[in-house]
Amino acid sequence: MDKKHFLNSINCEDKNLISNIFNKIQIAEKTNKIIFTNDFLPPAIWHQILAISEEYEIKPFTNGIFKDSDRRMLSFSSGESPIEYPIVLLKIKNKSKFARVDHKDYLGAIMSLGIKREKLGDLIIQDSVCYAPVCSDISDFIINNLNTIKNCPCDVTEYDYVSQDLPERKFEEKVIITTSFRLDGLVSAVCNISRNSSVELISSGKILVNYFNCLKKDKVIENNDTLTIRGYGKFKVVETVGNTQKGRLKVVIKKYI
């Protein structure tokens, strides 16, 4: 397996990340053991890894715990997909009956412990509970140190996702009107702000496209792309469903709840 060819086959600016993945594939090949990444990768990365897997004897597999997870841990094996991954699903319960906490509050509280975003999978919120897949090597640390979410007391325990039902992600779906699929136009429509304000968000680094920072206001967004807009939330672009009388596009988007 040629490392240079592998690195050039993956479209990602973080070549250290791709190099580390290549090294894990080599370890799996040499030891004939199942090797896992020690973080959760965005779909822009693991989709590409899966796409080129036919070229290699070692096969990649993914797991994000939830159905249709965006962020997933990769494993590499010469055999079948592993049954168990080094992932712990945490159940974080807001114990306050008077204050509501949102996705960004749970995520911010966990990361304030010094934990990188890559160590966490998708977070799903149901009522006053957050379900968070985390790398197993940090689960005890979070359980012992996460005491509050947005000044609200919380209780953190492990959730047995093998024998118990898994929560499902919920979306808020709506149709927006935009002049084009350019990033600045879509951000303007999604956030209901002016085009100049959307450009400011993009230039200040507050926009992620498929989980990667994007500073190009003229980047063309495609169906199934994910936009993360700091201060507004995370959205998936679904499809175009028609045009207005003035020729603008009607686009279905889903906001992650």
Rank of each mutant, 00 (worst) to 15 (best):
D2A: 04
K4R: 11
L7Q: 09
L7H: 10
S9G: 03
C12R: 10
D14K: 06
D14A: 06
D14L: 04
N16E: 13
S19L: 05
N20M: 13
I21L: 11
K30M: 08
T31S: 13
T31R: 12
K33T: 13
F36N: 05
N38M: 01
N38V: 00
D39M: 10
P42M: 04
P42C: 03
P42W: 05
I45G: 06
I45Q: 02
W46G: 12
H47Q: 15
S53F: 04
Y56S: 00
Y56M: 00
E57S: 12
P60H: 04
D70G: 07
L74F: 11
F76E: 09
S77D: 14
P82R: 08
I83D: 14
I87R: 03
V88F: 01
I92W: 03
K93S: 15
K93E: 15
S96Q: 11
S96Y: 02
A99Y: 14
A99H: 14
V101M: 11
K104Y: 09
D105G: 03
A109K: 03
S112N: 15
R117T: 06
E118D: 13
E118N: 13
L120I: 14
L120S: 05
L120M: 13
D122Y: 07
I125E: 03
Q126L: 10
S128D: 14
C135A: 13
D137M: 01
I138V: 12
F141D: 14
I143S: 01
L146V: 11
N147T: 09
K150C: 10
V156P: 03
V162I: 13
V162N: 07
L166K: 14
P167N: 04
I176V: 07
S180I: 01
F181H: 07
F181W: 03
V187S: 04
V190Y: 00
N192Y: 01
S197E: 15
V199S: 15
E200G: 09
S203P: 00
Y211T: 00
C214L: 00
K216H: 06
K216S: 12
N224V: 00
I229W: 09
Y232P: 07
F235Q: 01
V237M: 08
E239Y: 07
G242M: 07
G242N: 01
K246L: 01
G247P: 08
L249V: 00
V251P: 05
Y256P: 05
